[in-house]
Design a protein around this nucleic acid. Structure first.
Lengths: 148, 148
DNA sequence: TATTGTTATACTCTATAACTATA
DNA sequence: TATAGTTATAGAGTATAACAATA
């Protein structure tokens, strides 16, 4: 590796960190600007996890989302009150609770996803074909970075 | 544009949103895991803005960071108490306050930046030359997206 | 009167500690 | 005793409303 590439790579970490963080913040803001959903980040994230992993127990959900069980209790209370999830007794262990996402819950998750994608899709259309191709190739690399 | 490309572009928004959001979250977590800095996101962000735009008034800083003035008042109080910023009277308008970052403040911002970059730089080294080149090219496009 | 910044107060989110029910 | 979940309580962060000082 040449000295130029080494310098360039040192700058790459900074440049990538800034551009990724900034775009992520923008995506959050654009989602909130859409309003209407009126669920907090954590509430929506928990619902999205249930959408793909349902059924789960509150404990599993808390572990997955890296929050403490009491925090998840409150999140679930909100989701249940809005009929987005169902709480049912565990078939064999009566200490546990089984959570399942409702049809309303799935619909809301999908709506939220579409709304977040909408802003980005619009911005992507303003790019050149080459730029989009570049991002298409870069997306899996970014994904790999975050899972390292 | 072909039908295939259209479908692919629709998926691109979703793929890019997920990978960018996930990597940004990971960067936040890794920064916090480094500990030591002991400033909140907002406090560090405000300090970083002052590092590049100092001097600023509290009002300008609140506008820039999209928080309400009373919230910024509290952030500044913490930063001043730790000798990271200085509050001085405005030379001509005595209603206003002029904020400048101290040497300690600049040092802390740079340290925080280095620490955040360190994790990412390490991950980048695990990629192939081609993958790094891809990200180098993609970074400015991501930057452009966030500013759209 | 309008503007800049602060103080007073309340709300949301999350945490730790203590408790209940069950295994 | 140990585990799953909830309730009680506290702390951090941010908001709105009211206020003081100055333009």
């Amino acid at each position: 590796m040449t000295a130029t590439q080494t310098r360039s790579d040192a700058g790459l970490a900074t440049a990538l960190r800034i551009s990724v963080s900034r775009l992520a913040r923008r995506l959050r803001v654009e989602r909130q600007a859409e309003g209407l959903v009126s669920l907090s980040d954590t509430q929506l994230a928990a619902l999205a996890v249930l959408d793909t992993h349902s059924p789960m127990t509150p404990g599993e959900l808390a572990d997955h989302e890296k929050v403490q069980p009491p925090s998840m209790t409150r999140v679930i209370a909100v989701l249940e009150e809005r009929s987005l999830v169902l709480r049912a007794p565990h078939p064999t262990d009566r200490r546990q609770v089984v959570l399942t996402v409702t049809e309303d819950g799935r619909a809301l998750v999908n709506q939220a996803r579409r709304r977040r994608d909408a802003w980005l899709a619009k911005r992507l259309k303003e790019l050149t074909l080459e730029e989009r191709a570049l991002l298409r190739a870069a997306a899996p690399v970014l994904e790999k970075l975050s899972q390292a």
